[in-house]
Nucleic acid binder design. Structure first.
Length: 291
RNA sequence: GCGUCGGUGGCAGAGUGGUCAAUUGCACUUGACUGUAAAUCAAGCGCCCUUAGGGCUACGAAGGUUCGAAUCCUUCCCGGCGCA
């Protein structure tokens, strides 16, 4: 029978981190972050990264594993996360995945297999100048199979699809292979007005903790404005209002992704007892089935 | 007070007699998603009718000119600027 992995997901500021720590303490686990920006060193305040104190002694993985100057990717995330999970289960620990980046979470729970084709900056730059129509007709030539299901107007995806086809020299298989784990997916959700309040509170704290200072520091370390924008700090002069508005938008997009996943069991953040009971029940199942 | 420029959909801002329910951007709603994911992309976004399509109400207000007005004229209300 498969080993269990707990997944805690939800919109930003919904209380995931605290819940994950509690679950880890209760069930003897360690946490694996699933956040595309918290993987970078130095992006602490702006990404709402958990503090040492808040970790309450629980080891956290996949935080601070990348230099913000370089691009990270789902594929790298997947490799690191999967090996962390394997290590943990070998030690008898329960992995607790916690984060808000849907794609990253799915890369593990779906076991998506990514083609071994690293980004080709030169090719991307060249293709980037072409129109979507042009790219689409190129793709039809190099990978007609992919062309059938791709969004023909999405340049970013077209470029990547061509990139894969060119480097692989064959039609890549898009199969995904499920990992040998059972995922218990816990979603934290709360009504929009309440989420908004939490976001406001969090953003206020970000400024109080020195968000502007953090951004200035990153700039000093040689991170370009463009790169900062990629990392989600696109405001020239971040203000409380702007950051709150951006965060709310982001939270909505997160939800669009999560909604598709029928396996997520949703709770309100304050339903802690209920969640603990639910997770305990899920862990129990496994033992019974084993017998 | 005089002069002048302007008042357009949630906001910004096009249009300046018919092809305008009104370009575009933002916001908003919904959705897609296989190595950039806080990314990228799509659809919708006055009201009503089940779709094709049709109807109604709208471009500060009220009148007017015209076959026809968001667009022209008059008056009024409001705002910016200049002069007093």
């Amino acid at each position: 029978m498969n080993k269990k992995v707990i997944v805690v997901l939800g919109q930003t500021a919904s209380g995931k981190s605290a819940l994950a720590v509690k679950l880890a303490r209760k069930f003897g686990g360690e946490i694996i972050s699933a956040d595309s920006r918290q993987v970078y060193r130095g992006l602490d305040i702006g990404t709402g990264k958990i503090t040492r104190k808040e970790m309450r002694g629980i080891p956290h993985h996949l935080l601070d594993v990348a230099n913000p100057k370089n691009k990270f990717s789902v594929s790298k995330y997947q490799k690191l996360a999967v090996s962390a999970i394997d290590d943990m289960t070998k030690k008898g620990k329960i992995p607790v995945i916690c984060g808000g980046t849907g794609l990253y979470i799915d890369s593990i729970t779906q076991g998506t297999s990514f083609p071994e084709v690293p980004p080709d900056t030169i090719l991307r730059k060249k293709l980037g100048e072409k129109s979507a129509e042009e790219l689409f007709s190129i793709l039809k030539k190099v990978d007609s199979k992919r062309a059938k299901n791709i969004d023909p107007r999405n340049k970013v995806r077209l470029v990547r699809a061509i990139e894969i086809a060119k480097h692989l020299g064959r039609v890549p298989s898009l199969a995904s292979e499920k990992l040998p784990y059972d995922f218990i997916k816990i979603g934290l959700a709360l009504p929009a007005p309440e989420l908004k309040k939490r976001i406001e509170k969090r953003v206020k704290k970000m400024f109080a903790d020195g968000l502007l200072w953090e951004i200035a520091g990153l700039k000093k370390d040689g991170i370009s404005a463009r790169r900062l924008a990629e990392l989600g700090f696109e405001y020239n002069q971040p203000t409380y209002e702007k950051v709150v508005a951006e965060t709310i938008k982001y939270a909505k997009r997160q939800m669009t992704w999560f909604k598709r996943d029928q396996e997520i069991k949703w709770f309100r953040p304050e339903e802690e007892k209920k969640i603990l009971r639910f997770v305990a029940g899920q862990m129990e199942n496994r033992r019974q089935k084993r017998k």
